[in-house]
């Protein structure tokens, strides 16, 4: 246990968090769970695929000059009519499905990670403040959270999308849309963190160890950060993993409503939205492979999240 981080011995949940991610307990529990190891390997593979998309993909699907309509709607290579190098077939624009998955994965992961990071930071911060200070601050923040919850993520995205577009004079750019998505997904998920953190803070802050920390003269922010945060980190991490998966899927849903990544720079979700139209037509590979990739990724992340939750919870050890 890190003395500097937890100087108060009264803490009921001795969780070593910063830098303690790979301490022996975690590592043993990780190695013991085969499913978790597989999930971790799959996740790692997906990350590698996303990072090195440019090296492994035969085509840059974001470059319209590389797409040839003559290659459109080719089936996977093992089916009749399949053609190298389009291993998993092509879509209606001649986009190689495998390349599109690799590049789309990158976009989806960026949206997911940044979105979650943004919402977690925002939510934890506001939740800590609300719970710790209470009173008017609490009321205001939680009322804002109510307003926030009232707007489904979809609506928030539409709103921000519209505002950004009007500010930028409709000069649209796929990276801008990506930023908008991160921002709107982040904005729509912070409430969960805030509520969780606030709830924990409300319970924890009356406990002796916090009072003790206060007594020895530690300033409020330090008390919160060092003592309350570690205790809520478990649930926050679990929410974060589930939200990572959720963020990726929300992006897909947004593209179903026409506000996701544009089809010229498709994310995994956009690919599914496009492929969705080909479900009845027999061109199953356009939706099946991106769908499979998304489901596998989300599944793996969720499994990791489950394991993490159990491992981080000392009472379950």
């Amino acid at each position: 246990m890190d003395e500097a981080l937890s100087p108060v011995p009264a803490s009921p949940k001795p969780v070593s968090w910063a830098g303690g991610f790979f301490d022996s307990d975690l590592w043993i529990s990780f190695k013991r769970s085969k499913v978790t190891v597989i999930a971790a390997i799959i996740t790692l593979l997906f990350f590698l695929l996303a990072i090195f998309a440019g090296l492994v993909a035969p085509q840059d699907p974001f470059d319209p000059a590389q797409l040839d309509l003559l290659n459109s709607r080719l089936p996977p290579i093992w089916q009749e009519g399949g053609q190298a190098p389009f291993v998993l077939g092509t879509d209606d624009q001649g986009r190689d499905i495998f390349s599109a998955i690799a590049y789309g994965l990158r976009i989806s992961l960026i949206v997911g990670f940044l979105g979650v990071l943004f919402s977690a930071v925002l939510g934890i911060g506001l939740g800590l403040i609300a719970g710790y200070f209470g009173g008017v601050t609490d009321a205001v923040i939680m009322r804002i959270a109510d307003v926030q919850l009232t707007f489904p993520a979809i609506l928030i995205a539409l709103l921000i999308d519209g505002v950004v577009k009007s500010v930028l004079g409709n000069q649209i750019d796929a990276w801008t849309i990506l930023g908008v998505l991160v921002f709107s997904i982040g904005l729509s998920f912070w409430v969960q963190y805030a509520r969780t953190v606030r709830g924990s803070v409300l319970v924890e802050k009356n406990k002796d160890y916090v009072a003790a920390a206060r007594l020895i003269g530690l300033p409020a922010p330090v008390v919160m950060l060092r003592h309350v945060l570690p205790n809520v980190l478990g649930p926050v991490l679990v929410i974060a993993t589930i939200n990572l998966a959720l963020a990726i899927i929300t992006e897909a849903t947004l593209s179903f409503l026409g506000s996701g990544m544009p089809p010229t720079m498709p994310s995994l979700g956009t690919l599914i939205r496009i492929g969705n139209d080909f479900l009845f037509s027999g061109e199953w590979w356009i939706v099946a492979f991106p769908g499979l990739a998304l489901a596998t990724l989300v599944l793996a992340i969720n499994l990791l999240g489950d394991w993490l939750r159990d491992a981080l919870n000392p009472r379950l050890r």
């Binding site: 589930i242 998966a245 959720l246 899927i249 897909a252 849903t253 179903f256 979700g269 599914i272 939205r273 969705n276 939706v287 769908g291 998304l294 489901a295 596998t296 989300v298 599944l299 969720n302």
Partner: peptide, 8 residues
């Protein structure tokens, strides 16, 4: 339930 988009 959480790994595929609702519409799909």
């Amino acid at each position: 339930g959480v790994s595929l988009p609702t519409f799909l």
